[in-house]
Amino acid sequence: MKNLTHLDRLEAESLHIIREVAAECENPVMLYSVGKDSAVMLHLAMKAFYPSRPPFPLMHVDTTWKFREMIEFRDRKAKELGFDLLVHVNEDGVRDGVGPFSHGSAVHTDVMKTLALKQALDKYKFDAAFGGARRDEEKSRAKERIFSFRSAEHRWDPKRQRPEPWNVYNTRINQGESVRVFPLSNWTELDIWQYIRRENIEIVPLYFAAPRPVVNWNGVDIMVDDDRMPEELRSTAVTKSVRFRTLGCYPLTGAVESTAATLEDIIQEMLLTTTSERQGRVIDADQSGSMEKKKQEGYF
């Protein structure tokens, strides 16, 4: 008898979680951020229900500042797999011209991401939303349950988390409340890459190194993805061989200099690096405990 490998176990656990939501929740949605974790989550959703299709739509909260390659990838992938794709944009933010260059990372993220997500969940009345977060990403995530409850105001109360023994999940909620479900809770960054490699999962090419135009902004290299970047900044662009460890809004995502062009290269580089994956995100650096605060306020 063949023993299950670590990845087999992680996969089985995730399929169980995804099915449990489909069976018990009335109106679930899968939040799709187009990144590598989302790619894995999507792949797992396809597997969980095969030969049926996953009985829920995908939703992307589009801040309008994502890399263009991400948007192309998103639309093509959803179509290929036959998913309903809902794209939500905070139109108030668009009208007020909110963006990272003009308003800074904090305001931009708050309005275009946190607020936008709340709007979207309220609009469609989703009672459960899958997210691709992992416990190894950040220290307050390490504390979060797989089924994580949110009040009607979308707040997370870390002191009132439900006990979650074994794999028995209490999915019941009161009117207006919702639950965020994290099927990748127990995966690490290395697990994600290994699984992508094993299952041959397609990811956005930005993860692989290529010559790209970058500028230095607030101490990190960011890519010039469109001409909304202020002219004086854009004019300082140089071409470097870079890739990205996480993907988000292009002005808020730091590039790393690299020549890693294959999955093996990427994994090797990751195993030898001395900094964490989140370091490239401009949003965390503000203060310790900032992630917990954001989550309490409704950030995913």
């Binding site: 416990r135 190894d136 950040e138 220290k139 307050s140 995530r141 390490a142 504390k143 870390p158 002191k159 988390q161 809770s185 127990n186 690490t188 310790s288 405990g289 917990e292 605060k293």
Partner: peptide
């Protein structure tokens, strides 16, 4: 001890999973 309340009080309140 990743939660603000935990760091303030110097105790653990909820489980942390580490890998």
């Amino acid at each position: 001890d990743g939660l603000t309340a935990e760091r303030e009080q110097g105790i653990t309140i909820d489980v942390a999973y580490r890998f």
